[in-house]
């Protein structure tokens, strides 16, 4: 969503629209995480009045989708693909292969056993 997006590009490295969008989601989630957790606490706490808990539920549901962590998808830092991301390197499978063969990933070697 454009209202969340930073006015100036704050990413280095490979950039495309999807990466910018995902990055925006991450930042928005970070901003609102405490609020979400507080609401979640109120919802889970059975000792609070039912009314307050229901309201907290509503409020959590009305929060913007970008404040939700499930919207975040790990993307390849070097190529932007969203599938088969190796988390240790934040790379997609092909980028990982290329960089590993080029010796850019410390300690990664071709294996055979």
């Amino acid at each position: 969503m454009s209202m969340f997006r930073s006015k100036k590009l704050d990413l280095g490295g490979f950039v495309n629209g999807k990466i910018i969008r995902d990055h925006t989601k991450r930042k928005v989630f970070e901003q609102h995480e405490a609020e979400r957790q507080a609401l979640r606490y109120v919802i889970r706490n059975t000792s609070l009045p039912q009314r307050a808990r229901a309201q907290a539920q509503l409020q959590l549901a009305t929060m913007h989708a970008y404040t939700r962590s499930t919207q975040i998808k790990n993307r390849c830092v070097a190529g932007g693909t969203a599938r088969f991301i190796i988390r240790d390197f934040r790379l997609g499978r092909f980028q990982f292969r290329e960089q590993a063969l080029a010796g850019e990933l410390p300690g990664v070697r071709k294996a055979s056993w």
């Binding site: 590009l9 704050d10 990413l11 280095g12 490295g13 990466i19 995902d22 990055h23 991450r26 930042k27 989630f29 970070e30 901003q31 995480e33 405490a34 957790q37 979640r40 606490y41 109120v42 919802i43 889970r44 706490n45 059975t46 000792s47 962590s69 975040i72 790990n74 993307r75 830092v77 934040r90």
Partner: peptide, 26 residues
Amino acid sequence: RLRLGNKVLRQRLRGPSLAAWYPKKT
């Protein structure tokens, strides 16, 4: 043993680590 939702409070905040996924602008 009421459910007081304290486990939510005990969770650590994941935001900073998630937001640091992509490399910053240099």
